[in-house]
Design a binder for these strands. Structure first.
Length: 114
DNA sequence: ACAATGACTCGCT
DNA sequence: GAGCGAGCCATTG
């Protein structure tokens, strides 16, 4: 638990919680929004740590292809997909359909932040 | 302190 | 157009 990293992690959690219902975003988008476009991996790592936190809809965060790459880290195997489908998101073979439609860009959806 | 891994992304072949 | 490899940053062994 690093305090310095907590800032970065906290930011990820903030954005993750801000993801509207029935919307998803990519690690790169969040990373870029945080000013660490090259640190998309760290966003994923933050999501991994999100298990230690609460109310972090990590299932709404996928890679830029819309693939549920992190579903392996969830409890079951299709839990992540189930959650997304419960929000009205169409998921097919671990891949989000209409990804561009359900994609949530913090730069566009969050006019004033930072 | 060094080396390896990871829920990613971009570029080249 | 699809596949493979390298780059980046932080955490862990």
């Amino acid at each position: 638990m690093k305090k310095s990293s907590e800032n970065f992690f906290d930011k990820v959690y903030e954005v993750a919680k801000l993801i509207p219902f029935g919307r998803v975003t990519s690690y790169g988008a969040i990373a870029k929004y945080l000013g660490a476009a090259r640190s998309a991996r760290m966003v994923g790592w933050a999501m991994n740590a999100s298990h230690n936190n609460d109310e972090i809809p990590a299932h709404r965060v996928v890679n830029r292809k819309g693939l549920l790459t992190g579903k392996h880290h969830f409890d079951g195997t299709n839990l992540m997909q189930q959650l997304l489908e419960s929000e009205g998101i169409v998921v097919r073979d671990h891949q989000i359909q209409h990804f561009e439609t359900v994609f949530w860009d913090p730069f566009i959806e969050l006019p004033n932040n930072l």
